[in-house]
C-alpha cells in the first residue's frame, strides 16, 4: 500500500513540487493503479530472464570521425537564459 509519504518521497526524487491536495489525489490514483499492477504477483517469474529491450543489441558504436555538428550559437538559441556562451541558471552555491 502506497502512503502519502511515499508519494512525497517519490516527488522529491522526481524533483516535482506537489501541493498538498495534489499529493493526496496522487496517492489515491497510484494506490488504485498499483493495486491493478499487483496482479503480476500471481505469476511465477523466478526463472524468467528480464527483457528490457526487444532487439539483441549490446553496445552500438559509431566510427570515430569528425562530422559537422551544431555550433554553440545554434544550440544556445534555445536557451532560457544564457551568458558568455553558457546556459545560465540560478545561483548554485551561496
Amino acid at each position: 500500500m502506497i502512503s502519502e509519504n511515499d508519494v512525497k518521497y517519490a516527488a522529491a526524487l522526481a524533483r516535482i513540487h506537489l501541493e498538498d491536495d495534489e499529493a493526496s489525489r496522487l496517492t489515491k490514483d497510484l494506490e488504485k493503479i498499483l493495486d491493478y499492477i499487483n496482479k503480476l504477483n500471481t505469476l511465477d517469474v523466478k526463472d524468467v530472464q528480464p527483457t528490457s529491450h526487444v532487439l539483441p543489441l549490446k553496445n552500438v558504436y559509431r566510427e570515430d570521425r569528425i562530422r559537422p555538428s551544431l555550433t554553440q550559437k545554434e544550440v544556445l538559441k534555445i536557451s532560457v537564459e544564457q551568458q558568455e556562451g553558457s546556459f545560465k541558471v540560478p545561483k548554485v552555491i551561496e
Binding site: 502506497i2 518521497y9 516535482i16 496522487l26 490514483d29 524468467v48 528480464p50
Partner: peptide, 30 residues
C-alpha cells in the same frame, strides 16, 4: 504526466525495484 513520472520513479526506487520494475521486465519476456 506527473502521475506517470511518479509511478515510474516509485517502481524504480530502492525497495520497490524488484517488486515492480524487474518483475515487469520478466513478464515482458513471457
Amino acid at each position: 504526466v506527473k502521475r506517470r513520472i511518479m509511478l515510474g520513479t516509485y517502481s524504480l526506487s530502492s525497495g520497490y525495484y524488484d517488486a515492480y520494475y524487474l518483475k515487469g521486465l520478466k513478464v515482458r519476456t513471457l
